[in-house]
Amino acid sequence: MRPAGSELPPLEIPLTRTLIVAGAIASRDYQDVHHDPGSARDKGSPDVFMNILTTNGLVGRYITDHFGPTAVLRKVAIRLGVPNYPGDTMVLTGRIEEVDGDTATVRVVGANGLGTHVTGTVTVTVPEEARP
């Protein structure tokens, strides 16, 4: 396990319309603001935007991509800021805040062209024998 203070390499996520719609449907979230631009505009949003479940999934993927397939997510806590709209890019960055044995707490931030889309904390356990 890398020590507290280490930075994770950033992950760039192109925010395609396809990703936003596929993420909403894969998470069974049929709120129209996540797939129907006309309805999104009627509700005051300039376009469809990513649902929180997709953001949560991407944050989880960012951590398990880095720590490998044996990593076990214990806790994912996120807060949303500005929306993820199609055509933008979100860059996820992470920093190990705390290490306790084989368990790390990672602070994650996802920023897009408008500002901070997500801030969060992930607790992940990486079993001793299977360290990357």
Binding site: I13, I25, A26, S27, T54, G57, L58, R61, T64
Partner: peptide
């Protein structure tokens, strides 16, 4: 599988 495809998550887990 649909979830992993959407998220771009290729983990073998």
């Amino acid at each position: 599988r649909h979830w992993c495809e959407a998220m771009g998550d290729t983990s073998p887990a």
